[in-house]
Every structure is written in C-alpha cells, then in structure tokens.
C-alpha cells in the first residue's frame, strides 16, 4: 500500500469511529429522556388514581361547594387525556389540576370534621407527596431534555442528528399563564 492510501484509510476509520460514538451518545441521551418521562408518568397515574378517592371522601361534607369538586374532576379528566399528547400538553393540564386541588384543600380548611378525618388526611398526604415527587422528577427530566437538545444542536452531533431523525424534545413545563395561581375567593 502506498502512503496516500494509508492516510485515506486512517481518515475514513477515524470518521467512522467518530460517527459511531456520536450516534451511541445520541441514543443514550434519548433513552435517558424516555426513562425520566416514564418515571413522571407513573407518578401522574398515581395522582390521577388518588383524586376520585379524595372527591368521594369529601363529597358528603361539602354541599355548598360542588363547583370546586366539579372543577377538580374536570381538571383530572383533562390531565388524563393530555397524558398521551406529550410532555408540554401534559404539563399544562397538570398545572390546571394542581390549581383545582389547591382550591379544594383551601376549602377543606373550612370544615373542621374534614380536617380531622383520618381518611382525608391520608389522601392529602398521598397527594402532597405525589405532587412533590412530580416536581422533583420534572427537574431531572428537564435536565436530561436540555442536555439532549443542546447536543443535537451543536457540532459535531448536529451533522448526524438531522439525517438520523433526532428531533428536539419538549420540556415538562407549564405555560407561563398556566403557572399563575388564580385568586380563590374564600369566605
């Protein structure tokens, strides 16, 4: 073999190895996002399962605040439906659900029997922990998305990401207007 041939072969080998490394890195980052998203979905499902129990537990006591309960039930239905549409929509729907739950808990404060009810207290604790877990998982999920999005937008992975179908992923974040806490009118 002549010297030029060897040089060409070496260059080709370097390019092929580099491409394989970049591809593996992209796949790994994408898997990490899927994993983090699966974790959030487990928690969201748990939250959605807890809400009907809570509504049933408090329904009997709250004759005059049916609209608060209706809002929670509707927000839950919306969140369940949005779950399949991807992180951005889910985040928005979950934001509404969080607000509806907040106003429900604010109303519960007005009922001494409810505040002392063991079942309601347990459900409240379960919902609080689920909400916190979603919050902390979201941080982790968004960090993995940021890492992935930055990688596919920068050289040299940029060259491979487009042709191989690595597209940007959505953050799990509520829209700014959905994050605003509504004013709850209390007696």
């Amino acid at each position: 073999m002549t010297t030029p041939t060897i040089i060409v072969l070496v260059v080709v080998a370097v390019i092929v190895v580099g491409a394989i490394l970049i591809y593996n890195g992209l796949v790994q980052r994408r898997l990490r996002i899927d994993e983090a998203w699966a974790q959030i979905q487990v928690q969201l499902k748990r939250r959605h399962d807890l809400i009907p129990n809570l509504v049933n537990a408090v329904k009997g006591y709250m004759e005059f605040e049916q609209d608060v309960l209706t809002r929670v039930t509707e927000a839950r239905a919306g969140a369940v439906a949005a779950g399949a549409q991807g992180p951005a929509q889910a985040a928005q729907a979950e934001g509404f659900l969080t607000q509806a739950l907040r106003s429900l808990f604010a109303v519960v404060e007005n009922y001494p029997e409810l505040k002392a009810n063991q079942n309601v207290l347990e459900l409240q604790e379960q919902l609080t922990t689920t909400e916190n877990q979603i919050g902390f998982s979201r941080q982790h999920y968004n960090a993995t998305v940021l890492d992935y999005n930055q990688t596919i937008a920068t050289f040299p992975s940029l060259l491979l990401a487009g042709p191989l179908g690595f597209t940007r992923r959505d953050f799990f974040e509520a829209e700014p207007e959905a994050a605003e806490v509504p004013v709850v009118a209390l007696r």
Binding site: Q39, E125, Q126, T129, N132, Q133, Q139, H140
Partner: peptide
C-alpha cells in the same frame, strides 16, 4: 417514607 422518597428523587 413519602418524604424520603421525594428527597431520593430530588
């Protein structure tokens, strides 16, 4: 247990 789980996730 819930609080430990939350913090473990964080």
């Amino acid at each position: 247990m819930n609080v430990v789980q939350e913090m473990a996730i964080a």
